[in-house]
Simulated scan of single mutants.
Amino acid sequence: MFARQNSCFKCHAIDKRKDGPPYREVAEKYRGRDDAQAALLHHLTSGHKVKFPDGHEESHKILKAPPEDIDNLIGWILSL
């Protein structure tokens, strides 16, 4: 799976909080939004800063992959 190959599960899980929010929570946040695909694409490919539970910030890992792989990941997240 693309998410596993790119170490996404290091910080995220499907149903429980790790350093990042669970994917079901992400899906709920973006459900019904017209900009969901674009917002998640920006999040996954821009390297913007993310805040961790302990308060420190780091740049999110930039996914470098074919657009269809990233689109499939976003579709999977939004389907949860």
Rank of each mutant, 00 (worst) to 15 (best):
P22F: 03
R4F: 12
L73W: 08
H43A: 09
I62P: 04
L78M: 00
N72Q: 14
F2Y: 12
G75S: 11
I74N: 13
Y30S: 10
A65N: 07
N72Y: 11
I74E: 12
R31Q: 09
D15R: 13
H42W: 08
C11A: 04
H42S: 11
I62A: 00
K49G: 02
F52M: 14
A27G: 09
E25R: 13
F52Y: 15
A36C: 13
P66T: 07
A38E: 15
P67I: 15
D34Q: 15
Q5Y: 11
L73G: 06
S59P: 04
D35M: 11
D54N: 14
H48E: 15
I62M: 04
Q5G: 09
D54T: 04
S46N: 11
E68F: 14
F9S: 06
C8D: 02
H48W: 01
R17I: 05
A27Q: 13
V26S: 02
H56F: 01
T45G: 01
I70E: 00
Q5E: 14
W76K: 08
V26L: 03
L80K: 13
S59H: 07
H56W: 02
D35K: 12
E68K: 14
L78G: 05
I14D: 10
R17G: 06
L44E: 03
I70Y: 03
G47F: 05
F2G: 07
A27N: 11
R33A: 08
P67S: 14
R33W: 06
K61R: 10
S46I: 01
A27F: 06
V26G: 01
I62L: 04
V50K: 02
E68D: 15
E28Q: 14
C8K: 01
Y30F: 15
N6P: 00
H60R: 05
I77H: 08
A39S: 15
Q37D: 09
D54G: 02
A3L: 14
N72L: 12
W76G: 02
G47M: 11
R17W: 13
S79K: 10
H56P: 01
G47S: 10
E57Y: 00
K64P: 00
C11Y: 04
P66R: 14
H48Y: 08
Q37L: 12
F52V: 00
F9G: 03
K16W: 08
R24C: 06
D69P: 01
R4P: 03
C8H: 04
W76I: 05
R24I: 12
K16A: 08
K29R: 15
A36V: 10
A65P: 09
V50Y: 03
E57C: 09
L41V: 02
K29H: 12
Y30C: 11
S79P: 05
L44I: 07
P66I: 07
D19W: 09
L63W: 11
S46A: 10
G55P: 08
G75A: 10
C8P: 02
L41C: 00
E25I: 08
K61W: 05
L73V: 07
S79T: 07
Q5K: 14
A36Y: 11
D71Y: 13
K51E: 05
F9N: 02
G75T: 09
I70P: 07
L41E: 11
G55I: 03
G20H: 02
D71V: 09
R33Y: 08
L63A: 08
L80R: 15
T45F: 05
R24N: 07
I74M: 12
L78I: 02
G32D: 04
E25F: 06
S7I: 06
H43R: 07
